[in-house]
Design a protein around this nucleic acid. Structure first.
Length: 460
DNA sequence: TCGTATGATTTAAG
DNA sequence: CTTAAATCATACGA
């Protein structure tokens, strides 16, 4: 309302000026046609329409290629309204346009017409009211915001991102060197995304405010010829902001996607799988094959293995899980490996026992082989070796306890059969299912092992 | 480039 | 929680 009154007063106050403007043919014509109000109003309405259209067109043509939209609305000062046309002329509007506009603004009937328009509008504006009462924060955009914040993209500064990366990597449990390299890489990429995000965001914001400015100035400008309430301007601005925020949401969404892809590329351990080093595999295999009858390392054993191999406990668990299932699935394939490690372990054990019996030393400084877990093994190693040799190994007296252990294990697992018959190296398969048999009723599903599917074993 | 090896994850059971 | 089993996705060697 305030604006309107201001506009009105401004316009009325300019009546004199308009009449003085003799140079304008339109104005002259209008002055002459004062006697016919009807025609006059029709005329002026037409002009208003024309000008409204034109000023929009002009605005599009002028505002966008150039900047400095600020001068567009001219001054807000109502007293200057009459001269606004003149002032605007500097902007490069066609002279014709300027003239007509000016004439219109200064027409004697203008105030009356304007008030009529206001009145009409007053009635219609109510219907608009109801339409625009909703602005609950979009849950979608809030989710995106939260995620970007959590990823350190939209957060304060670096730190959030690296912290997240560190946490993720810690969870992934990669080797320290690897992960640190990957982290810097990850952080670099994240920073890149972050930078792009921010520059885009800034661009959007700038564009938004620019556009808002244009529109506001346009409306203000138009408000000289038609009634525009501040509420309407406000509403228009809100609409523009909504549009731009939907664009912003797209930006946020694609940024989120980029971050997710980055994360999965860099932090998903599965994608970044590295084989364990040779020594680690060896250690694990030695344990596995020396505990073949019960290859389920205890928590402590796992920890020790993990330490030895420079991997995490869960990696040890994974390894044993994979190994068990794969061994069981195709024992034949692993036979060679089994024999290899059996020999290895047996040799170690022999060394140990030899030293134990000779030097009475509890230490196990065996060359190269890092098997030092307190070898309470189930005797599989000896079994393997024995079967390799075809006949019994001469077991040192000091090994007797281990043989006992073997017996016990044999009993426990119940997986051994009478091998004795074959005598030679026909080591039957330690039915892998028997790993579970202690608890399970015997599932007859023998693994689809190849013909030679075999494991060294012993008779009693 | 392709087949295999292998570490990790998922699913389901207990 | 642990585990078996299936599956995924990469590593790696021929």
């Amino acid at each position: 309302m305030d604006d309107q009154t201001r506009m009105m007063t401004g316009l009325t106050g300019l009546g004199g000026l308009a009449q003085a403007d003799v140079g304008d043919p339109d104005s002259v014509r209008k002055q002459q046609s004062l006697g016919q109000p009807q025609q006059d109003i029709g005329d002026i309405l037409q002009q208003i329409m024309a000008i409204t259209d034109e000023s929009l067109d002009e605005a599009q043509a002028r505002c966008w290629p150039e900047e400095s939209p600020a001068h567009w609305g001219g001054s807000d000062d109502p007293t200057e309204g009459g001269r606004a046309g003149g002032g605007m002329a500097g902007g490069g509007l066609p002279l014709n346009f300027q003239h007509r506009k000016h004439a219109l603004n200064c027409h004697r009937m203008k105030p009356a017409l304007f008030s009529v328009l206001c009145e009409i509008k007053e009635k219609t504006v109510l219907s608009i009211r109801g339409v625009q009462e909703e602005d609950p924060p979009d849950p979608q955009i809030m989710r995106l915001d939260n995620m970007l914040l959590a990823e350190g993209v939209s957060g304060p500064e670096k730190g959030g991102g690296s912290a997240a990366a560190a946490a993720a990597a810690a969870a992934a449990g990669g080797s320290p060197t690897d992960s640190s390299i990957e982290h810097s890489d990850y952080r670099a990429k994240l920073a890149q995304i972050r930078q792009i995000y921010h520059s885009e965001l800034e661009k959007y914001e700038q564009a938004c405010s620019e556009f808002t400015n244009h529109v506001m100035n346009l409306l203000r400008e138009q408000s000289r010829t038609r009634p525009i309430s501040p509420k309407e301007i406000e509403r228009m601005v809100a609409i523009i902001h909504r549009k731009f925020s939907s664009i912003q949401m797209q930006l946020k969404q694609s940024t989120c996607e980029a971050v997710m892809i980055l994360r999965s590329r860099f932090l998903d351990a599965r994608r970044k799988r590295r084989n364990f080093n040779k020594q680690a595999t060896e250690v694990l295999n030695e344990y596995f094959y020396s505990h073949l009858s019960n290859p389920y390392p205890s928590e402590e054993a796992k920890e020790e293995l993990a330490k030895k191999c420079g991997i995490t406990v869960s990696q040890v668990s994974n390894w044993f899980g994979n190994k068990r299932i794969r061994y069981k699935k195709n024992i034949g394939k692993f036979q060679e490996e089994a024999n290899l490690y059996a020999v290895k372990t047996a040799v170690d054990a022999a060394n140990v026992s030899a030293q134990a019996s000779q030097a009475n030393s509890p230490a196990t400084p065996n060359s190269g082989s890092p098997v030092s877990y307190s070898l309470p093994n189930t005797g599989d190693a000896y079994l393997s070796l024995r079967s390799l040799n075809g006949e019994g190994l001469n077991i040192a007296p000091s090994l007797q306890p281990q043989v006992d252990t073997l017996h016990r294990a044999t009993h426990l697992t119940g997986g051994y059969e009478e091998l004795s018959g074959s005598g030679l190296y026909t080591p039957h398969c330690l039915d892998a299912n028997s790993w579970q048999d202690t608890t399970n009723p015997h599932p007859v599903t023998s693994p689809p092992g190849p013909p030679g599917s075999v494991h060294s074993d012993t008779s009693n």
